[in-house]
Simulated assay, not measured.
Amino acid sequence: MLKRVRLYSLSTCPVCKKVKEFLKNNSIETEIIEVDTLDSGEQWLAMKELKKINPDETFPTLVVETAVVGLNEEELKKILEVKD
């Protein structure tokens, strides 16, 4: 089942890099929004959207039809239906 996946990330965040690696290793097609690399207007819009999903505005925030904050591989496998 194909699910819409979006990752709000920072280019320098080590946990964000691990989430991206997890997604890549499991062939999960993802829209990645590197918030710190956006221009100021786009960054403002991205943060406004992120705040609706994750009021703490922490990174990484992965949205898989629902929000997953941080790196929780077991939860990600369950939501993304990744088989071991």
Rank of each mutant, 00 (worst) to 15 (best):
M1C: 14
M1E: 13
M1I: 15
M1A: 14
K3S: 13
R4C: 13
R4G: 14
V5S: 07
R6T: 14
R6Q: 12
S9P: 08
S9R: 03
L10G: 10
S11M: 06
S11V: 05
C13V: 03
C13S: 05
P14M: 08
V15W: 02
V15A: 01
C16L: 02
C16P: 00
C16F: 00
K17L: 12
K18C: 07
K18S: 09
E21T: 11
E21Q: 11
L23Q: 00
N26V: 05
T30V: 10
E31C: 04
E34M: 03
E34P: 00
E34I: 03
E34D: 03
L38W: 02
L38C: 05
D39L: 06
D39E: 08
E42V: 10
W44N: 15
L45N: 06
L45I: 08
A46Q: 04
K48H: 09
K48Y: 10
E49M: 08
E49Q: 11
L50G: 00
K51I: 13
K51W: 12
I53D: 06
P55L: 03
P55V: 01
D56V: 12
D56M: 13
T58N: 01
F59N: 06
P60W: 02
P60E: 01
P60K: 02
P60V: 04
T61M: 07
E65C: 07
E65W: 10
T66E: 13
A67W: 11
V68D: 02
L71M: 09
L71V: 07
E74W: 11
L76M: 12
K78T: 11
I79V: 13
L80I: 07
E81V: 13
E81I: 13
V82L: 12
V82P: 09
K83R: 14
D84N: 15
D84Y: 15
D84F: 15
D84W: 15
